[in-house]
Design a protein around this nucleic acid. Structure first.
Lengths: 184, 184
DNA sequence: CAACGGATATGATTGTAGTCATATGAACAC
DNA sequence: GTGTTCATATGACTACAATCATATCCGTTG
């Protein structure tokens, strides 16, 4: 899909990897976003007449297309579906903010720990879905850095590992039953 | 505002700085998002009954509240306003993706250049609105790193500076008036 | 079985952004 | 005029993630 083409609708990526990029006036190339499976993209096409960027498949990829005309009609006729789209966008936005904030953390061990905390469902156990390499990519680290970070955290007894499971070790300081933690 | 409290609505920050954070089950603290002036936040509160995080004012701050009940009523009665909210979210999402992608670039000079390219309106001139320090914050760099990056880019003749203006120097390959610069 | 590829791991080295210190210039107060 | 504050700038040093190399373990395939 090319910059300036008429927008046909919104997409959902089922497999592969896409790169959204733009040619800048000075002739340079800027990557706007890398799309990974499970993501919707080009949502803005619903509100604009043409795409403002190129989309390149970095590998064989499969997408669903939500054709603009169908989708807008459906959204107009059925307010609930629009509501659903909106809440989906709000969720995505929240997710992006989380990922962004995670990247503000420079130290690899800290970043990994916060990542695990975000995924903590209360049990404190994170069962690595997929490989550590994938987790490294998601964290924006090289896999080597992730291995080292996990080793460091384990050495510091801040996490425990068995097999693919990662368990955060409690942080509570004076706890028998939890004292209010100095919150920054 | 505290984790678990009943959600009262969505906010818009006019001044100050807020930190959205969450206490994790292990007693640790995770920053979810730092809100800066001009941003809306807690959009998800429209779709949930309670806030899932604390919001702390890091300085004196002023916000507008869009009360949930009023807003939802208005959005239900007036589909156009819902449409507007949705497109706003899509735009915010796009903006976050840009910022995220920018952070993937590790080299400070490259990051700065891409940032300028994103802001290129075609003239190739970026008039620094605000200080360079603010720009550094937005780029996720220290101000020292930004000063050095700008100096480097200027030395490499990839940008030009006069006063507060930053101009990207052309990169075009087949430009008769320009030596082909190995781009990327 | 051996051979291969991939994930996991760790060691050695390097590049570079962060950190701390310091200097200059402009704006402003008194 | 002097003092204060802030943005801008640069130098010195450090920390640490990336990079490259190497090794082990495992599952698959022939």
């Amino acid at each position: 899909m090319r910059q300036g083409e008429k927008s046909v609708g919104m997409f959902f990526l089922t497999s592969g990897r896409l790169r959204m990029q733009r040619v800048t006036p000075d002739g340079g190339m800027v990557t706007l976003h890398v799309v990974r499976p499970g993501e919707t993209f080009a949502e803005a096409s619903l509100f604009a007449d043409s795409y403002q960027c190129d989309i390149i498949a970095e590998s064989d990829a499969a997408v669903w297309l939500y054709p603009k005309v169908d989708l807008t009609r459906r959204l107009r006729e059925n307010p609930d579906s629009l509501w659903e789209l909106t809440s989906g966008l709000a969720r995505s936005l929240h997710g992006m903010r989380l990922r962004y904030e995670l990247k503000q953390i420079r130290s690899a061990p800290e970043r990994v720990l916060q990542y695990l905390r975000l995924r903590d469902d209360g049990t404190g156990v994170y069962h690595a879905s997929g490989t550590l390499k994938e987790m490294a990519t998601e964290l924006g680290l090289t896999h080597e850095a992730l291995y080292r970070a996990l080793a460091t955290l384990e050495r510091q007894k801040r996490i425990r590992r068995n097999g693919g499971d990662l368990q955060i070790m409690s942080n509570r300081r004076n706890d028998p039953f939890q004292t209010p933690d100095s919150a920054d």
